[in-house]
Amino acid sequence: MELKALDETLLAAHAAQDKSMLVSLYHQAGDHMLDLGNIDAACFYLTHAYIFALDTNDPSAGAIHRILASHGREE
């Protein structure tokens, strides 16, 4: 998904408080930034994915946490 389109979808998910969707979209954005080698931007998005995953007890929380921890962003 293009970043602009992703941004619009994210805003819609926030408006709808669709937290499962927010986990997925922020995860995608983080992965995209990792592919581009932009670690800070990736960790920003992945942090949001992680927080919404914690919030909803989403099973992806563990995997996202491992990525953040590997970059020194989480314990």
């Binding site: 920003f44 989480e74 314990e75």
Partner: peptide, 20 residues
């Protein structure tokens, strides 16, 4: 306390002064 998002700056969820 499980997480402190961006507490050390954007995407930085740790800070030496924030002891969970």
């Amino acid at each position: 306390l499980r997480s402190t998002p961006h507490v050390g700056g954007p995407g930085q969820n740790l800070h030496e002064n924030i002891k969970r």
